[in-house]
């Protein structure tokens, strides 16, 4: 008798789980993935600002992981970067860009003992030339292929420094390793991402040289992507999602301390570092078409992608959701 009762109880338990699951799915929902860098963390706030759609926000270690989840149809929307967009298009994946998010977050740092004046490219070029004359390699590092890498290469190219000949490039894929590399003197210059840049500066492992935004890619970083099948099946949900992103951007643009809080919460770094990081962050939901094409061109030159995706970059930027969410025409949204 007891066994039958237990079996019934367990079966009932499973049944009710199923029912509640079904009930939860009755409301329209979007599964959203984001990476765990400082500028990406505000994405974790979107569920609160979403009306009429249930946003299930999932954190990933890197933008690449989020992109993979998107193209393998495990999530509906992914927050990645302009570079991921170009790479995905190059590989023939079906991705549609629907919104910007937060830009900036790149910083160039140099070793403490280098005789370099902040923002003075001439002084930097002199040090590089000195190293070359002495036969020492001037080691320059970044996480290869991400936004900071592109920003740095663009800046170097604009200033006339040949990254292949004048310096030695070292790839340090994981931003958390940047601090140690600088502290141990294994590299001279690094272009890293927030909040690690602030962390490095506050630990006095390096000094700030400048921000690498004076080049074709500007300070563009994050981009929100989805797929065309999601656009066809869930247009309303996507519109609400973009609306939520825009609202979050407005909120953190007005109230910097809120951004500090969310960075601390998601990354676990202390408030002091988060506060320093937000200075270099620019919440901006607009999508910049011309710069996106420039980025794709740069990536082709750097052989990060094989083909010319400029046409696809333009064609797959879908401004309809941004227009609906902001009420502005696309010409005012970066087109």
């Amino acid at each position: 008798m007891r066994k039958i009762l237990w079996a019934a109880l367990i079966a009932f338990g499973f049944a009710s789980l199923h029912v509640s699951n079904g009930l939860a799915q009755a409301e329209p929902s979007i599964k959203l993935g984001y990476a765990k860098c400082a500028h990406c963390t505000p994405m974790s706030l979107t569920p609160q600002y979403a009306k009429g759609v249930q946003i299930d926000a999932v954190g990933f270690n890197t933008g690449t992981d989020a992109l993979t989840a998107l193209v393998s149809k495990n999530i509906d929307v992914a927050q990645v970067t302009y570079l991921h967009y170009a790479i995905a298009l190059d590989k023939g994946f079906d991705v549609v860009a629907i919104s910007g998010q937060v830009n900036g977050g790149s910083a160039m740092l140099v070793g403490n003992d280098l005789e370099v004046t902040p923002n003075d490219w001439a002084s930097l070029k002199k040090v590089i030339a000195d190293y070359k004359a002495a036969g020492k390699p001037f080691r320059v590092a970044a996480s290869r292929g991400n936004a900071q890498d592109i920003h740095m290469r663009g800046a170097f190219a604009k200033q006339g420094i040949d990254i292949n000949k004048d310096v030695q490039f070292i790839n340090i894929p994981n931003p958390s390793d940047h601090l140690q590399a600088l502290r141990r003197g294994e590299i001279e210059l690094i272009c890293t991402v927030e909040p690690f840049a602030t962390q490095i500066l506050q630990n006095k492992a390096a000094k700030l040289f400048g921000l690498p935004y004076d080049q074709a890619a500007g300070k563009l970083t994050n981009l929100i992507l989805t797929r065309s099948d999601v656009v066809a099946a869930k247009p309303k949900e996507l519109e609400e999602t973009v609306r939520a992103v825009v609202k979050v951007d407005e909120f953190i643009a007005q109230d910097k301390s809120a951004l500090v809080d969310v960075i601390s919460k998601v990354t676990g770094l202390d408030k002091a570092i988060a506060t320093g990081a937000v200075e270099n962050l620019d919440p901006d939901p607009k999508m910049y078409r011309a710069s996106a094409v420039a980025i794709a061109g740069m990536m082709r030159d750097l052989k990060y992608i094989n083909s010319d995706v400029s046409a696809a970059v333009e064609k797959n930027m879908n401004y309809t959701f941004l227009e609906a969410a902001t009420g502005k025409p696309k010409t005012e949204l970066g087109y």
């Binding site: 690449t64 790479i87 070292i170």
Partner: peptide, 21 residues
């Protein structure tokens, strides 16, 4: 080879993954 080496089969694996290759 996730850890900041400059070459190697594992390094190529991670780098290729990053570029969706």
């Amino acid at each position: 080879e996730m850890v900041a080496v400059k070459s190697g089969l594992g390094y190529v694996l991670w780098d290729s993954y990053y570029f969706l290759r």
